[in-house]
């Protein structure tokens, strides 16, 4: 049982590492956010689940469950708030980008006023 938990934890830590690697490699802040949010959510989920499986005899499983739920719910919200703020203060998308519908709509509205 403990070995199984260890394997799950190891997979989770690999996803955490991939998230950090994505943060270093991606070209602009929105792509970094994509890598950071997704990989760390699943990585933390697996990491904590693995530890809970390894420590199944103690009463801490429910607390770890609450921690996992909290992270799943709040991680996308904080990245959404940050992406919105970044777009609002005008941090540009990378040169590879194809389209930016939000900037188009905003400039259209300003033109109308």
């Amino acid at each position: 049982m403990a070995v199984f938990g260890g394997i799950v934890t190891l997979i989770g830590s690999v996803f955490l590492l991939l998230g950090a690697l994505g943060i270093v490699r991606m070209p602009d802040v929105y792509n970094r956010m994509q890598a950071g949010t997704k990989a760390t959510t699943l990585g933390t989920l697996l990491f904590l689940t693995g530890i809970a499986i390894g420590q199944i005899e103690c009463m801490c499983i429910f607390r770890i469950l609450i921690l996992i739920l909290f992270i799943i719910f709040t991680n996308p919200i904080s990245s959404h708030a940050l992406a919105r703020a970044a777009h609002h203060i005008g941090i540009p998308l990378t040169d590879k980008s194809v389209t930016d519908a939000l900037a188009d709509d905003e400039s259209e509205k300003e033109g109308a006023v």
């Binding site: 403990a2 070995v3 938990g5 260890g6 394997i7 934890t9 190891l10 989770g12 830590s13 690999v14 955490l16 590492l17 998230g19 950090a20 690697l21 943060i23 270093v24 970094r32 990491f47 693995g50 530890i51 390894g54």
Partner: peptide, 24 residues
Amino acid sequence: MADILYNTSAVIALIAIVLAGYRS
């Protein structure tokens, strides 16, 4: 065996923190 797995994952997570710290 299990201890080795857990410790390895902690080390990998530490490396991830260092990488993110580089970006920060």
